[in-house]
Simulated assay, not measured.
Amino acid sequence: MANRHLSRSVVLQTLFEWDFRQLSTEAAKEALARNASEFAPAAGDLPFMGDLLAGAITRKPDLDLVIGKAAPEWSIERIAPVDRNVLRLGLFELLFADRDKVPAKVAINEAIELAKSFGGEHSGRFINGVLGAVYKELGEPGKDEVSKKKKDVPYEQMPVQRLGGAVVYARQGSEVYLALVHDIFGHWTLSKGKIGDAPEIAEESTDEGTIRSIKEELGLDITIKEKLGENEYVASDPATGKKRKHVTYFLAEAPFSEVKLEQKGGLDDARWFRLQDALDLNFYEDMFPIIEKAVQHLTAKPITKTKI
């Protein structure tokens, strides 16, 4: 069965893009197809995603009116872009979806989880408050229903997907620059890609896969200097359920040449930043330790090639 949480994540990403870029409805449909192909190729749930996106866009005036009444101290323009689009999705399902297929509590809980994953520190609480107020106005439908949850797979039994990424730097005169990518949720982050995700590259090492991935994504030929660290998080896959994504990050040097961002969903910009300017950008919290370690290496000692 297709993973509806993943499908909702893809719709949220597309709705954010539609809102941020002021896309037409037709362009939003094209963006959805692209994002679904990139982030949920095995989902087989495009009709559900299409209906959800179309509903949220078509009902936007009604949804925004409800948001304004449920959160009168916040104008729709003042609400963070991710949060307001999570609200639109959650409200559309809460108010207009078939309740036999999407119970009210499921609509609210799904929206809260999306907010926690893609919003800010307080987004989950904010979404819960707004949708909870609407839920009470509706008479708390399904309050006594007991939801049936799939049995969670123990963490140690989840399949592991390898990824490789890098803090890519270049030297130009006396300056050091970092090559960073920007996602459609408003954050600058590090370029990364899947390792060994096709039969012809199944045996590639982590550093080989990282070099290949960054070449594909940024058009840069990098030389890995050293390993910076690793992190791991749990993500949902439509075919296998939850999986552990294990990312290895490197420090890598590249020539100071034009960055050519691969055209794919999720990213909308890539560029070089002077090292001192990059530190003021909006990064995801879990990226700071990796970037700080790279900066320490770049400013405190010469970079030498080490064996991975």
Rank of each mutant, 00 (worst) to 15 (best):
L6A: 10
L12T: 01
F16L: 11
E17C: 08
E17R: 10
Q22P: 05
L23A: 08
E26F: 07
A27I: 04
A28Y: 05
A31G: 02
F39R: 08
F48H: 14
M49F: 02
R59Y: 12
K69M: 09
E77N: 13
P81K: 00
D83G: 00
V86D: 01
L87E: 05
E93D: 15
R99Y: 09
K105C: 01
A107Y: 08
A115H: 06
A115K: 02
S117I: 07
S123E: 15
G124Y: 00
A133H: 11
Y135I: 01
L138M: 13
P141H: 07
V153F: 01
P154F: 03
M158R: 12
L163Y: 14
A170H: 03
L178K: 07
L180D: 14
H182Y: 12
P199S: 05
E208Y: 04
I211E: 15
I211Q: 12
R212C: 05
E217P: 09
L218I: 00
L220M: 02
I224D: 00
E226T: 12
E226W: 05
L228Y: 05
R244P: 11
K245E: 13
L251C: 10
E253F: 02
K260C: 10
K260R: 10
E262Q: 15
Q263N: 11
G266Y: 01
A270C: 06
F273I: 00
A278R: 01
L281D: 15
N282Y: 09
F288R: 11
I291H: 12
K293A: 10
L298W: 06
T304G: 08
